[in-house]
Amino acid sequence: MMIEEQLLKIKNYDYINQIALKGKILFTGSSLMEMFPVCEIARSRGIEEIIYNRGVGGLNTDEFLEHIDTLLLDLEPSKIFINIGTNDITETRFGDQWLEHLMDNYRRILEIVYEKLEKPTVYTMAFYPANLHLPWQTAESIEWMKLRTPENIGRCNEALNKISESFGCNYLDCNADLTDENGEQKPEYAIDGVHMYANGYLKVFDSLVKYFY
């Protein structure tokens, strides 16, 4: 169930969408997108393209679908970068069917995008690595993150890549510089083992900036 902070954020996006320019670049998803300072990095690199960020922390794919108009469709973007679903990996409602539910929702998101928008260029972004073995992890956080193993992240990315191919959209894996020798998130980028500091996002930006043009 969504919390008041998320609903207020979406309401605010709804208002600002009313004056936003159509046909621009959109980054959308959950907290891993909301925390991506893509607009600031782009501006500091001299990039003039208009970029909107519609990330909302804590969203799962069910909630994203519920609010897909505000978070994606209303902007009528020409290029869409999507990073959604990491919160589904912690879901307990679906038991060992969590991956199937996640990917079914991803298919539905892409179906809606291609049905409602005219020839968008869509980029599905690989799930970032996580790190369950940082020294500041607690028993509670490890329990919450227990499904975010390199193996499960790999399963998600393999499935997402196949779905992206089936829709003819672009799957982007920006993880090479984020991942250590164990397949986990490098500690120097880690806030909590899932979310990243801006130094990690600088690496992501360098991997995807060529797709702005």
Rank of each mutant, 00 (worst) to 15 (best):
M1S: 15
M2F: 10
G193K: 12
H101F: 05
L71Q: 11
N199W: 11
M103L: 06
T138S: 00
I84Q: 02
I191T: 05
L132Y: 02
Y171G: 03
L72T: 11
D104C: 05
N17F: 08
H101D: 03
G95H: 00
K79A: 01
Y52P: 01
N60R: 07
Y52R: 08
L208M: 11
A198L: 07
L75N: 00
R93V: 03
A126R: 06
R148D: 09
D74C: 07
D180S: 00
T121W: 08
K119R: 07
R108H: 04
I41G: 15
N182C: 08
L132S: 10
K24I: 04
L208V: 12
E188V: 10
T138Y: 02
R93I: 04
H101A: 03
D69L: 04
I80A: 04
N105L: 06
Y171P: 01
G55Q: 14
A126G: 10
N175G: 12
D88A: 03
Y13F: 15
K11E: 15
G200Q: 09
C39G: 13
Y213G: 09
K162L: 14
T28R: 13
A190C: 10
E111P: 04
D14P: 06
D14Q: 11
Y123S: 05
D104Y: 09
Q6F: 08
K79R: 09
G57D: 09
I19L: 13
L132E: 04
G57A: 14
I25H: 06
K162Q: 12
V194C: 11
I68D: 00
N157K: 12
V122H: 05
N60S: 11
Y106G: 01
A190Q: 03
S164G: 12
E181A: 14
E158Q: 10
E76A: 04
P135N: 03
G85L: 04
K22M: 08
N170R: 08
A42G: 14
I163T: 10
M2Y: 13
Y13M: 12
G55C: 15
G46M: 13
L72I: 06
Y106D: 00
N157H: 11
D192Q: 04
H101Q: 05
R43C: 13
Y201R: 02
R148K: 14
T92A: 02
T86R: 01
L8E: 15
I89Q: 03
E158K: 13
I19D: 08
R43M: 12
W136D: 04
L102W: 02
G29I: 14
T70C: 02
F127C: 08
A139L: 00
L160V: 07
E100K: 08
E165L: 15
S78R: 05
C169G: 01
E188Q: 10
I50H: 13
T92N: 02
W136V: 02
Y211V: 05
D88E: 01
L132C: 08
T86W: 01
V204R: 07
I112F: 02
E91Q: 02
Q6S: 12
H195R: 06
P120D: 09
N12D: 15
T138H: 02
E118H: 09
T149C: 09
A139V: 00
E34K: 15
E66P: 00
G55P: 15
D62P: 04
N131Q: 00
V56L: 12
E76K: 07
E111C: 03
V38G: 13
I10A: 14
N175L: 05
C169R: 01
N175T: 11
Y106P: 00
A176S: 13
